Amino acid sequence: MPPIRSQSSRNSIEQEGRVLLAIQAIKKQEISSIRDAARQFQVPRTTLQRRLTGLTVRSETRANSHKLTKTEEQSLVQWIFSLDDRGAAPRPTSVQEIANLLLAARGSTPVQTVGEKWAYNFIKRHPELSTQFSRRYNYERAKCEDPIIIHEWFDCVQRTILQYGIDPDDIYNFDETGFAMGLTATAKVVTRSEYYGQRSLLQPGNREWVTSIECTNASGWALPPCIIFKGKVFIEAWFDDLPGDWRFEVSPNGWTSDEITSVAFKSSLFRRQLLV
């Protein structure tokens, strides 16, 4: 059996409805006087006057530290979820700005604002939210990781394999990656206790580009990598304890080329066939 509201509760709900109608009539300039609006809608004049200044209804009033109502906070949570789903999670400062906009929309004078730490307290009150360090994510790469597009691509590959009877030993995944030499990575260092925050590390001047070519087979084995340095001549004595099957090449800019890729792939594949 559904709960039965008391008479006082029903009266409070009915009065709140009349107050909202009176506020709407005043804002639309249908009634110019607060006293006349209170008389026509049968609500206390002081209640109507306080509500026009931005005071919230008692049923929605929260602790002093909660300046937004439950409905406003839930709307803010949904706004955060919406941005997060689109890969644009907001910063705490943005959450604070939206909270101030919600307070300003009440039309109260003076306009209320949240405190500097309000966003962090707001996150603590909502276990579904948390703060994390973000990382840059290229939009074009994000599109390539769309599950629908990925499934369509693999379906096409599977149809091609079945149509032409391709053996797994004849399927290769070939890719290249590059990195700059001499870039200092983030690491824990020992320094003076008087320093505050992260300690800066000087970057060496060497910024030469190195390219690595990798190739794997659908059967589960991989060809040795091909490392391409910038230069004219490669001397193996520069490095110690390198695997004997790795291939090293040089190019004017440290990038790969059609010729280097073709020679490296054919040489590694031929060596693989000899071992088999």
Rank of each mutant, 00 (worst) to 15 (best):
F234W: 13
T160M: 11
R247E: 08
G54F: 05
Q132I: 06
C156M: 09
E194Y: 11
V114C: 01
P204V: 06
S262Y: 04
M1S: 09
E214F: 12
Y195M: 14
L129F: 06
P3F: 08
T47C: 04
P127Y: 00
T177F: 11
T113H: 10
R207G: 03
Q198W: 06
V19Q: 03
S130I: 02
R18W: 02
D170E: 07
D146T: 15
S219C: 12
D167L: 06
E152L: 08
Y137T: 15
T71P: 01
D258S: 11
S33K: 13
T177K: 10
T93M: 13
E73A: 01
E60C: 01
P168Q: 14
N206S: 10
T69G: 05
D241Q: 07
L202N: 11
Q40W: 03
G220L: 06
F229N: 02
I4W: 06
C226P: 00
V276K: 15
R62G: 01
I260P: 00
D241G: 04
R50C: 04
E214C: 11
E60A: 06
L274F: 06
R135W: 11
V43S: 01
E236S: 09
E145Y: 08
P2L: 05
R35A: 14
C215M: 12
M181Y: 09
L83M: 15
K143C: 12
G87W: 14
R192A: 08
I213C: 03
E152A: 11
L52V: 07
C215H: 04
T53E: 08
V43Y: 02
L202F: 10
E176L: 09
R39L: 08
K266Y: 14
I166T: 13
D146M: 07
F133S: 04
E145C: 10
K230R: 14
G87K: 14
K117R: 15
S268W: 05
T191P: 00
Q112G: 04
R271P: 00
A185D: 02
L103I: 04
R207H: 13
E194F: 08
L101S: 10
F270E: 10
P127S: 09
Q163R: 15
Y164L: 06
T256S: 13
T191V: 07
P204M: 06
P90H: 13
L101G: 09
L76Q: 01
W209D: 04
V190W: 14
A38T: 00
T191H: 12
I148M: 00
L183S: 05
K67M: 05
S212I: 15
R86A: 15
L76Y: 03
C156S: 08
N121S: 09
R5Q: 10
T160Y: 10
R58S: 05
E259N: 04
P252K: 08
P225G: 05
K266M: 12
D84Q: 13
Y195F: 14
R10K: 15
E208Q: 11
Q15R: 15
R86E: 12
S200Q: 15
N206R: 14
T47A: 03
Y137V: 14
L68P: 02
D241V: 03
D84S: 15
K70A: 04
R18Y: 06
R199C: 10
R50G: 04
F234C: 10
